[in-house]
Amino acid sequence: MTLPKFISILAKPILGLTLAVLALTAPLSLPPTQPVERYFRIEASQFAYSPGVLQVNPGDQVTIDLVATDVVHGIYIDNYELQASADPGQTARLTFTADQAGLFRFRCLVPCGQLHPFMLGKLQVGPNQLFLRAVLLSLAGLLLVLWKKPLSTISI
């Protein structure tokens, strides 16, 4: 195998990959929404947050009251790097501005038993752009497959 041939084989996947990453990450500014104040009371128990999914808009002023109902729990919001811990019954409060858009997981930060590493919830700020783009990309990928010339000449 010669080098140019090798490059020509790799060229398509690399081009596709670049386009896919661009399509998924290119910034797209959405019309801003009117910021509002959002209040959530999250009850944490082994090994669940209730509610487990929070939905806000970018710019919203978010207040989260964390109440543990069995043992000591905590909360750590990915990317926002906010954290708090709460003893049972004692409300712990997090206040922040939702200035990063996207979907973020929040996780328990205080070891609370067996499934502690998997105790998590989701904070969605604005529409989940990545997911919507991923759906479009999947459809585009499938169309690409269909649009191709016949793939096989063998019959079985």
């Binding site: 009850e43 109440v67 543990a68 109902t69 069995d70 003893d87 049972p88 019954g89 004692q90 409300t91």
Partner: peptide, 19 residues
């Protein structure tokens, strides 16, 4: 009160604490 009582007696004292 906070450390020992509140989990049952609750922050408001209403007696409806999480436990």
């Amino acid at each position: 009160y906070t450390q020992n009582c509140l989990a049952c007696h609750s922050e408001s004292g209403r007696g409806d604490g999480v436990m």
